[in-house]
Lab assay of single mutants.
Amino acid sequence: MSGIALSRLAQERKAWRKDHPFGFVAVPTKNPDGTMNLMNWECAIPGKKGTPWEGGLFKLRMLFKDDYPSSPPKCKFEPPLFHPNVYPSGTVCLSILEEDKDWRPAITIKQILLGIQELLNEPNIQDPAQAEAYTIYCQNRVEYEKRVRAQAKKFAPS
């Protein structure tokens, strides 16, 4: 494992614990031996107030490669969400998460999670990743928002 990646992720964890947006979660997972795995984080993004996503808490896994922060983490909703920019596998399609697009090593975990929260309610229809959600979003916004509200209710924190 890269010392650069681990040191950056340790800084990220410290900064997150000191200050993070209300309702968001970002925690490194534990290895079988109980030690912390900084390369694999369990996160959760709350649906934004005043949107059909409100009330939901959407679980996301963030996986970092050894060359982080040169390369972005892979962000994957578990379980996958109904959304035009979420692949059926759950992987998020967002330009700041793509090395050859808008990724920059200075982007923080907090910025990534806030960017994904923004994307939930403002899909990028130029870059669809899920045919069904994309089609319904474009053709029947009322039905799309109904499905999103049902999903938010399903993923409401207990």
Rank of each mutant, 00 (worst) to 15 (best):
M1Y: 07
S2I: 08
A5Q: 13
S7Y: 07
S7V: 11
R8Q: 06
E12G: 02
R13K: 04
R13Q: 07
K14P: 01
A15F: 12
A15G: 10
R17H: 01
K18M: 07
P21A: 01
F24R: 02
P28R: 08
N31M: 13
P32I: 13
D33R: 01
G34M: 08
T35W: 03
N37H: 12
N37I: 09
N37W: 09
M39L: 10
N40T: 09
W41T: 01
C43H: 01
C43I: 02
C43S: 10
I45P: 07
P46I: 09
P46H: 07
G47R: 01
K48F: 10
T51H: 06
W53M: 04
W53C: 02
E54L: 04
G55I: 08
L57T: 07
F58Q: 06
K59F: 13
L60R: 04
R61A: 10
M62G: 03
F64K: 03
K65V: 07
D66W: 07
D67L: 07
S71N: 10
S71E: 15
S71I: 08
P72L: 01
P73K: 02
K76H: 15
P79D: 14
P80E: 11
H83Y: 00
P84N: 13
Y87Q: 05
P88S: 14
S89Y: 15
G90I: 02
V92G: 01
V92H: 01
C93G: 02
C93R: 02
L94Q: 02
D100P: 09
D100T: 13
D100V: 15
D100C: 05
R104N: 01
R104Y: 01
P105T: 06
P105R: 05
I107W: 01
Q111P: 15
I112S: 07
I112L: 15
I112M: 15
L114G: 12
L114Y: 12
L114H: 12
I116V: 13
Q117T: 12
E118K: 10
L119S: 05
L120E: 02
N121A: 10
P123F: 01
N124P: 03
I125E: 06
D127E: 11
D127C: 00
E132M: 09
A133S: 11
A133K: 04
Y134T: 05
I136L: 10
I136D: 10
C138A: 15
C138F: 08
Q139R: 13
V142C: 13
R147K: 13
V148C: 12
A150L: 13
A152G: 07
K153F: 08
K154R: 13
K154D: 12
F155L: 10
A156S: 10
P157D: 10
P157G: 10
P157K: 15
S158G: 06
